[in-house]
Simulated scan of single mutants.
Amino acid sequence: MYLLAFSFGLPSNLLALWVLVFRTKHLPSTTMLINLTVVDCLLFLVLPFRIAYHFQGNNWDLGEPFCRIVMAMFYGNIYSSVWCLALVALDRYVALVHPCGAKTLRSQQMTLYMTGAVRLVMLAAMLPLLLSQHDPTA
């Protein structure tokens, strides 16, 4: 499944990123979608290491520090994707249900704050994995 996700996910997310950056009007919602796409691309860049790990019979040959980094990136990016999707859903909700209050909540500055919060959540989720010992052969 990782191989399938990597094969289709990375090229399609890179295309989406290109369209969002170069072919779309830069609105606050676009900023959130760009953030989601970048987070997903970072996840797809870690997948080849997970694929190699599973193809080698769950044997990690790249050392314990790199194991920490791959695990932290893998799970941190999954958490970030969920938070990015939640923020996009919240943005859509505010735009449809509360259009009068949408100007304040959907400003570029508020979007950057929310994007920064997602990055902090990602780092917080990654920190325990980066600091804990892993058995790369397990």
Rank of each mutant, 00 (worst) to 15 (best):
L3K: 09
L3F: 07
F6T: 13
F6N: 12
G9V: 10
L10S: 06
L10G: 01
L10H: 01
S12L: 05
S12Q: 05
N13S: 10
L14M: 10
L15K: 02
L15N: 03
L17V: 00
V19N: 08
V19R: 12
L20T: 03
L20I: 04
K25R: 15
H26N: 14
L27T: 15
L27Q: 12
S29F: 08
T30Y: 03
T31R: 14
M32S: 15
M32R: 08
I34D: 02
N35D: 14
N35W: 04
L36A: 08
L36M: 07
L36V: 00
T37C: 13
V38Q: 05
V39T: 15
D40N: 13
C41R: 00
C41S: 14
L45I: 15
L45G: 05
L47C: 01
L47I: 07
P48V: 00
P48Y: 07
I51R: 00
A52M: 06
A52H: 02
H54W: 06
H54T: 09
H54F: 10
Q56R: 11
Q56D: 10
G57P: 04
N59R: 11
W60F: 02
D61Y: 06
L62Q: 11
E64H: 04
E64C: 02
V70C: 13
M71V: 14
A72M: 04
M73C: 12
G76F: 00
N77Y: 01
N77P: 05
I78F: 05
S80H: 00
S80I: 01
V82R: 08
L85E: 03
L85G: 15
L85Y: 04
A86H: 09
L87M: 06
A89H: 07
L90S: 07
D91Q: 15
R92C: 10
Y93C: 09
A95C: 09
L96T: 09
V97F: 08
H98I: 08
C100T: 11
G101Y: 12
G101D: 05
K103C: 07
K103R: 13
L105N: 04
L105G: 00
Q109R: 15
Q109S: 11
M110Y: 01
L112Q: 12
Y113G: 03
T115I: 12
T115H: 06
T115S: 12
V118L: 10
V121Q: 06
V121R: 06
M122R: 15
A124Q: 12
A124N: 11
A125E: 01
M126G: 10
M126T: 05
L127Y: 15
L127D: 03
P128H: 11
L129A: 14
L130S: 10
L130R: 06
L130H: 06
L130T: 02
L131N: 07
S132K: 14
S132N: 03
D135M: 02
D135I: 03
P136D: 13
A138N: 08
